[in-house]
């Protein structure tokens, strides 16, 4: 085979795979829409769920998901940012840096059920915090830590060297360098990272299912040791009630809300990132 035919084959192959992926995405989205849309009666988004989720809306579940995610990101952000800045600004040795990077990627690829299990044993059982807001957000925080770290590090490393050097040449100490050059210049990158972290947290179900949430009966958690209702649990429980078609419809509806949430977060992250790229090309 000549180089040109190989090139053609590869191109067709890549195009094929791309089409399959796009097709999958489109079909998932359309199924979600077709199945989920009927649930969007009156004020599905802003009403309380009734009759064990078979009727009513998903307001508290959506709010609970947001609460849990936000707490997790708030817990995770300082740790992730601290470790990123330690790696990029303080560590000199390249080998150790590479090792840490590899570890983060490894952590990022760890099946989340393991985080859930270990987290449950550590927080829920050993620390005895039970099924609660605090247990769930701690576990989620640990789980999104690698994701957050990877995207924050990308943001910090994307900062053009010239800004660092300009600050350095003016005699800025490392801490002023971080405070006055790195953080302001990477602000949008960091926000993007946080949004992606939130999106990732919204996608995690396994770990929080049995550590943070209950199905019904509660609205907003009154304290950190209360459980939180979430969309994820709502969907799981409702989907198991095959005998009640209205439950299934509600589950699809909740699924659509969750999908929308993740979609909006990702879209925002993408918009901000595009803006950052434009700015850095100035």
């Amino acid at each position: 085979m000549t180089a040109i035919t190989i090139e053609k084959v590869v191109r067709v192959f890549i195009a094929g795979i791309t089409f399959i992926i796009i097709g999958l995405l489109v079909s998932i989205f359309s199924i979600m829409f077709i199945k989920g849309f009927p649930a969007f009666h009156d004020d599905f988004l802003f009403a309380e769920s009734k009759d064990f989720g078979r009727a009513g809306g998903v307001f508290y579940q959506s709010a609970g998901t947001l609460i849990l995610m936000t707490t997790a990101v708030l817990l995770s952000l300082p740790v992730a940012l601290g470790s990123v800045l330690f790696q990029t600004e303080y560590l000199a040795s390249g080998k150790f840096k590479t090792l840490l990077t590899q570890l983060t990627y490894l952590l990022n690829a760890t099946p989340t059920i393991l985080f859930g299990l270990v987290g449950y044993l550590f927080f829920g059982v050993y620390l005895d915090t039970g099924v609660s807001w605090v247990t769930g957000s701690m576990i989620l925080a640990v789980m999104i830590l690698p994701t957050l770290q990877v995207s924050l590090r990308e943001a910090v490393e994307a900062l053009p060297q010239k800004y660092r050097e300009a600050g350095m040449a003016l005699g800025l100490s490392r801490s002023s360098q971080i405070r006055r050059v790195i953080l302001p210049q990477c602000f949008y990158g960091i926000v993007t990272g946080v949004l992606l972290g939130l999106a990732r947290a919204a996608g995690e179900t396994a770990a929080i299912m049995f550590t943070a949430t209950t199905f019904s009966g509660i609205q907003f958690p009154q304290s950190f040791s209360d459980p939180v209702p979430t969309l994820q649990t709502h969907i799981l429980i409702l989907a198991q009630e095959a005998a009640h078609p209205e439950s299934i419809a509600q589950a699809w509806g909740s699924g659509l809300v969750l999908l929308g949430l993740v979609f909006i977060l990702t879209l925002m992250a993408w918009l901000i990132r595009t803006r950052v790229v434009m700015e850095s090309e100035l």
């Binding site: 010239k162 800004y163 050097e165 300009a166 350095m168 040449a169 003016l170 005699g171 100490s173 100035l282």
Partner: peptide, 18 residues
């Protein structure tokens, strides 16, 4: 840091902060 304030460097391409 005080050395770098006593010995200032100007680069080939001007780099101002936004």
């Amino acid at each position: 840091y005080s050395l770098r304030r006593k010995v200032g460097m100007i680069f080939q391409k001007p780099c101002v902060f936004p």
